[in-house]
Write a protein that binds this DNA or RNA. Structure first.
Length: 211
DNA sequence: GCGACAG
DNA sequence: ATCTTGTCGC
């Protein structure tokens, strides 16, 4: 079952394992992870693998099931990580880096869902969030940096339509690599990088197909 | 006590 | 995130 205090303790423990860089080499496959819900406790997670150069979909997989843990700000991973990991491991190919819908190090205990998944699977991950959660935003050189304990962990970037996107280090990537790969896969007129956008779109279609 | 609060 | 159709606008 779910013990709030245990969750906090686990996050503080796992956060010690998070690494900023080094970046993966020869990045050709980028995956995106997202979860949609039917009602309040039935979720569908989808993993989409994209070719970093052609932006074509290489593979796609889904995982669904009852979700008993409620959403609590700061504890999102306990609600969604299991389904996301199941979907990710169902892919027939291995991504070089994974984008997760949620924050990475920009988190109260430095362990947003992107970092959580990165540490648990020991893979490179990037957090992609549409809303602010935690951290100091500093405008510098016409760019908005996200600082945690005075350390750079990511950037707030602008989407083609003027919206904001919080891009942060999940695990084993640098802030600049996270931003660069995100920009590369951010195709107008969309406001989310392709891997996440497709995972989001596909997961809601699956969910909505359930009458 | 007050405000903030990913998906 | 989800409950929800059409509609106004770039």
């Amino acid at each position: 079952m779910f013990i709030h205090s245990r969750a906090l303790k686990l996050q503080r423990k796992l956060s010690e394992l998070v690494r900023i860089g080094p970046n993966p080499t020869n990045v050709e496959i980028v995956a995106g992870l997202d979860v949609s819900y039917r009602g309040k406790d039935f979720g569908v997670a989808v993993a989409v693998a994209i070719d970093r150069n052609t932006h074509k979909v290489l593979d796609c997989a889904a995982s669904r099931g009852k979700v008993d843990i409620p959403y609590v700000p700061g504890l999102l991973a306990f609600r969604e990580a299991a389904l996301m990991i199941a979907a990710l491991e169902s892919l027939s190919i291995k991504p070089d880096v994974v984008m997760v819908n949620g924050h990475g190090l920009a988190h109260p205990r430095k362990l947003g869902i992107a970092s959580h998944i990165g540490v648990v699977l020991n893979i490179s991950t990037i957090g992609i969030a549409r809303h602010y959660l935690y951290g100091k935003i500093v405008s510098e050189n016409s760019e908005n940096k996200i600082l945690i304990e005075d350390k750079l962990v990511g950037y707030v970037i602008r989407t083609p339509r003027g919206g904001k996107l919080y891009v942060t280090v999940g695990h084993r990537v640098t802030p600049d690599f996270a931003r660069r790969i995100t920009q590369e896969l951010l195709k107008p007129p969309f406001s989310l990088p392709e891997p996440i956008r497709l995972a989001d779109q596909i997961s809601r279609r699956i969910v909505r197909s359930y009458v």
